[in-house]
Design a protein around this nucleic acid. Sequence first.
DNA 1: TATTGTTTTCTTACACCGCAAGAGATGTCA
DNA 2: TGACATCTCTTGCGGTGTAAGAAAACAATA
Lengths: 220, 220
Amino acid sequence: MPSRRARPRTGLTREKVIDAALAFVDEHGLAALSNRKLGAALGVEGMTLYYYVPSKAAMLDGMVERLLELSAGDLFAEPAGQWTDVVREFAVALRRMLLDHPAMLTVLATRPAATPAALALLERGITVLREDGVPLGDALDVLNAVVSFTLGHTLAEAGETPGHEGTEPDPGQFSTLDPATYPQLAEALGTGTGLDAEARFHRTLHILLAGFAAELDGAR
Amino acid sequence: MPSRRARPRTGLTREKVIDAALAFVDEHGLAALSNRKLGAALGVEGMTLYYYVPSKAAMLDGMVERLLELSAGDLFAEPAGQWTDVVREFAVALRRMLLDHPAMLTVLATRPAATPAALALLERGITVLREDGVPLGDALDVLNAVVSFTLGHTLAEAGETPGHEGTEPDPGQFSTLDPATYPQLAEALGTGTGLDAEARFHRTLHILLAGFAAELDGAR
DNA sequence: TATTGTTTTCTTACACCGCAAGAGATGTCA
DNA sequence: TGACATCTCTTGCGGTGTAAGAAAACAATA
């Protein structure tokens, strides 16, 4: 009675596993990700994945890393024009990327970002800014401000709830807002004021960049 | 042979359960929170908690809600002076509160914020700004910008990793940074440039508020 | 070809998790 | 006392991450 183990090789790779995990959470949400289910999607037993990725934490880190690698080209297009334009386009591209992968948004916001791909991105950003005359410390402040704001804003805009993905489409979550207890919010809702997340994002981004630029020009 | 069930009443309350959960994650981290362990901390079987809180998702939502309630007083002190000062103090208090409860930072960033306490806070903020002459739409933009930035910045500053809490103190995580591959970052590290998270937070916050104020003054 | 050794896959097992269902003790009130 | 609502516990299910190790698939060598 042979217990028939170990099917023929599947040609798996750490990279293939992580790419499959990215595709999996894009489709099913972060909460649905498990080694057994991901293994099934790859035609393999769950424990097999441990040969390529040593733990779930490493899996998540690898997914962040890979996502940054894959997006690096979009995030920093060829620097053209003022540093403010470069940074603005970076922020816009970052936001778009996060909205395209809402499940990864949570992971990205939650894991410390000192991975090679993240550091490389930061390094490149600093270089661009310095080449345009921005001092090192200011370059760090600008990039930190823009990334923090973009991440925070996109989280509020599209933040999925781990474990809740897809359970609450909740389209009119604000439509049932009592005007007596929340008069201001009810008014905003009624008049449609301030509901355009994208416009708000661009406005604040502009203020942020213009503010830094003014400070730097004043110091020069 | 009586199977000896149901100990005498413990005087538990939904509020007590949630407060205990807040204390638990403050001490042990978010990943350690489970009904069985929280029950043990309260001298009760794990399943008992389901009588007070219907699910883990409801537990997390309740914790956010309660934290906001408890902090509401600190977050909006009596409005004194310009709206910019009020908002600045709000942001500083919010950051301090988040740093005091790093485990809740992840939860707060991750859950949609349309709960009564959050809405009440927002409502109050809008009111303060409008009383100082800020139009509704701009008030929403200002508050959204400040909250997004504060949350994003604090996440990057102190973001705990769910499941990793306390496993990596990692004090010198940047100390082993290769100057060949990351010359800019190595320089920043070597000269100590831009490592003060608090100073950076205040600087960006100032730019943000001054930028909005300038826009509003210009429009008046 | 036969044998050895490495790489890959699978099986089994464990402790833990959230939660559904329901039993039974505790306390309250007529 | 009895009836009733409130509270706590027990049991059980399917899921998770992962430790340990057996066994099949392949590569290389004798």
